[in-house]
Design a protein around this nucleic acid. Structure first.
Length: 412
DNA sequence: TGTCCACTGGAAGGGAGGGCTT
DNA sequence: AAGCCCTCCCTTCCAGTGGACA
């Protein structure tokens, strides 16, 4: 029998001893430079162990500032302690970027509280009120204190409003046997603007701001994890460079860890046993490219067409593009892809989405007599071949690209 | 100073697709 | 099967807007 293709790869030595330690979801035994934050949250949650209601909290801070890690860390300890002293504590972490409707959050919480598959709340079909009632009843049956963490809570609020928070934060008034505490996590300092005054005061009983890590703090974090790699495989300057690059990206610890991991992969790929700053730079480029490629490829067709329209202007040297200009080229592109164009109103939303994804920046500007519009600037690095990625993900896009440029070249 | 441009972005609602209840 | 409910994607309608220009 022929050798299995994975055989040689399995025995081939890698630079990793434990790759998972370099993943940003890994919660280590120590979280450097977050003592103050850990202590603040713990001081609040310790109330739960006394059978009291901890305050609701909002945690603010940029991506990779350790909000989620600190919270998971504290919750793990809380749960452990609760089990030890036989105090009933339930902890739930929900990422609202994925679970972004009131119904889904309630259903998920309700289902966490029950093991019987037959009693599970369906993912759709019930009136939301009913899901809420079931959740309340299950909490009451369970008793104790429930700590609900809503990570990236701004996504939920912007999409579904603050009804859920209103209901959750008023639940304590209805519960006799159980207590509930809500912790919201967000990187949007202004998100409370979207909240009703009552919700705002009830949720923001205690605010905590996580400042971004500095380069030297990031170094400490990386040094703590570097034992996930083969001893001696990291040459001088690698950790510092990863930290410096991530510090430039608003002190993002997630980025720093990703960089170190990807650098090891780059070194391993070319069969080298030592990771050098050169590998870090390669890794940095690859991370950027991979991330963009994935996002662009996954865009729905019309979103791709809008991005293409922006790119077509950009390629012609137009650096600040208005919504109207995008719409004109977009309509052409629709013709070439045999699809009906969406309305201009919808395109405004699609442009905002691209802005949110970081592919463009769209600023509303007034050009006086020439009206008000968005000024759109493409942010995708030129090293990324947008057209190729789109064509690979959606073969029809190749026609659009070809047709658009053949028209443009005849115009010139 | 008022007009008017080219939009922006909120609100309401339609309809297709998923699913539940009776 | 009929009647609901929730979500997603989209349309229609429209009030609002900042500033160049007459």
């Amino acid at each position: 029998m022929e050798e299995n293709i994975f055989e040689s790869m399995m025995v081939e030595s890698s630079l990793f001893l434990d790759k998972s330690r370099l993943h940003h979801t890994y919660v280590p035994e120590q979280l450097p430079h977050r003592d103050k934050e850990i202590s603040t949250i713990a001081h609040n949650l310790v109330e739960a162990l006394h059978g009291q209601i901890p305050s609701n909290m909002i945690l603010y801070g940029v991506t990779g500032a350790g909000k989620t890690a600190v919270t998971s860390f504290v919750l793990t300890h809380l749960q452990e302690k609760g089990d030890n002293i036989d105090a009933k504590v339930g902890t739930y972490v929900i990422n609202c970027r994925n679970i972004d409707t009131n119904y889904r959050v309630l259903a998920l919480l309700g289902n966490e509280l029950i093991d019987d598959e037959n009693e599970k709340i369906p993912f759709t079909g019930w009136p939301t009120d009913r899901v809420f009632d079931v959740l309340m009843r299950r909490m009451e049956d369970e008793g104790g204190v429930h700590v609900v963490v809503l990570d990236e809570i701004d996504y939920l609020i912007k999409k579904s409003g603050d009804d859920l928070l209103y209901n959750l934060t008023s639940l304590n008034g209805m519960l006799r046997n159980a207590r509930l505490s809500v912790i919201g996590i967000t990187n949007d300092l202004t998100f409370t603007e979207y909240l009703d005054a009552r919700v705002k005061s009830r949720l923001g009983q205690e605010d905590l701001i996580f400042s971004p890590y500095t380069a030297s703090q990031l170094q400490d974090i990386l040094n703590q994890r570097v034992d996930a790699l083969v001893p001696g495989s990291v040459s001088d300057g690698v950790v510092n460079l990863c930290a410096a690059m991530a510090a430039r990206e608003h002190g993002d610890a997630r980025r720093a860890l990703d960089l170190l991991r990807a650098s090891a992969e780059e070194a391993h790929r070319v069969g080298e046993e030592k990771i050098t700053p050169h590998h870090v730079r390669l890794a940095n480029n690859r991370l950027e490219r991979d991330q963009m490629t994935l996002v662009i490829g996954d865009l729905p067709l019309h979103q791709k067409l809008v991005l293409f329209a922006i790119y077509a202007h950009h390629r012609r040297g137009v650096k600040r593009i208005t919504t109207g200009e995008v719409y004109q080229v977009y309509k052409q592109a629709c013709r070439h892809s045999n699809s009906l164009p969406l309305t201009a109103r919808r395109i405004t939303d699609l442009i905002s989405t691209l802005d949110m994804l970081g592919m463009i920046t769209a600023q509303t500007v007034s050009r006086g007599r020439y009206g008000r519009s968005k000024e759109i600037v493409l942010c995708i690095p030129s090293s990324i071949d947008i057209e190729q990625i789109m064509a690979e993900a959606e073969p029809m896009m190749q026609n659009v690209v070809n047709a658009t440029y053949s028209i443009q070249s005849t115009l010139i």
